[in-house]
């Protein structure tokens, strides 16, 4: 039961969504774009999120795209995680994303959670961003000032840096990245459903490892300095990993009900070892 009231509209096109947003804003209504809506509903129930209106972007055809054009894979922001994992093309087109999103929440919830929703959420893990970070994906954004395409690295700094009225329509990813050798691992406290202690997505490109992490800090990240250490092949694996972990300011490593800071660091070490090993960089 959601204690607050808000107005719901479904947008049929990008233009209509933008127009609606503008209309609500001029009436002084706080507005959110709504995709899967799972996080909006759960946080609103607990008084942790409030708004006057939501604009559902699911009906927008451009946000439902799943296609390859000139070796670029375009994925609509309103695709559900289940659609991404079950799409017959995905195991070849972007297997890393497929396996990564398949570990988020549970099968039934993934029928509702969308790619865009996971990327833009408040939940600190946002694991769908990991494959995009290591694959240098491009983000297609619609907003009051028209459409734009930005590198994920410019637009995602700890959280999605969207301006008022903007929303993600699509993610575009080049073949060279999405078809590269990859590795994904998610370590939980226990069991097969739940948030990560550490989850990692990695690819090997031109003998270098790209890796992005969630669960370690209160935001997902990819660190070039960390990768530089991990890719110092003349050093022993143990040292590469220790140096890479040293990059993370200790106080930024989470210490909570999922795991203590010290144990997280241990898990991170094992995850990095496994990643290097699996991607032939050990």
């Amino acid at each position: 039961m959601i204690p607050i009231d808000f107005q719901y509209v479904a947008a049929q096109s990008v233009a209509e969504a933008i127009r609606q947003y503008h209309q609500f804003s001029t009436s002084d209504m706080s507005t959110r774009y709504y995709s899967g809506g799972t996080e909006i509903i759960t946080l609103a129930r607990l008084h942790q999120l409030t708004m006057d209106a939501v604009i559902d972007i699911k009906p927008i055809p451009a946000a439902q795209v799943c296609s390859i054009v000139e070796e670029k894979l375009f994925l609509g922001a309103a695709l559900t995680l289940s659609q991404i994992t079950s799409h017959p093309m995905m195991s070849r087109a972007f297997p890393l994303l497929q396996v990564a999103v398949n570990e988020i929440a549970d099968r039934t919830a993934r029928n509702k959670i969308t790619l865009g929703g996971n990327l833009c959420g408040d939940i600190i893990y946002r694991e769908a961003v990991l494959p995009l970070l290591v694959c240098d994906s491009m983000v297609r954004i619609a907003g009051p000032n028209g459409a734009k395409e930005e590198s994920i690295h410019r637009i995602f700094r700890r959280t999605m840096q969207l301006k008022p009225g903007e929303f993600i329509v699509q993610i575009a990813t080049d073949k060279i990245y999405r078809c590269a050798p990859f590795f994904h691992v998610k370590r939980r406290k226990m069991g097969k459903v739940g948030y990560p202690i550490v989850s990692a997505a990695a690819i090997r490109l031109q003998d270098n490892i790209h890796i992005a992490l969630s669960g370690v800090c209160s935001f997902p990240f990819r660190s070039r300095t960390m990768e530089d250490w991990l890719n110092q092949k003349h050093l022993p694996v143990h040292q590469r990993i220790e140096e890479a972990i040293q990059i993370i300011p200790p106080e930024l490593i989470l210490n909570d009900y999922e795991a203590s800071r010290e144990y997280r660091r241990f898990v991170l070490r094992t995850v990095l070892e496994e990643t290097l090993h699996q991607l032939g960089s050990a």
């Binding site: 039961m1 719901y8 809506g37 799972t38 509903i41 759960t42 129930r45 289940s82 929440a105 549970d106 099968r107 039934t108 919830a109 029928n111 509702k112």
Partner: peptide, 24 residues
């Protein structure tokens, strides 16, 4: 749980299961 965690509210919408507590 009303939080999408337990599945007791699952219904089928267009042939797919959904947790009806996290759907408007």
């Amino acid at each position: 749980c009303e939080n999408g965690d337990c599945g007791a509210c699952t219904v089928i919408v267009n042939q797919l299961p959904y947790k009806s507590c996290i759907m408007l």
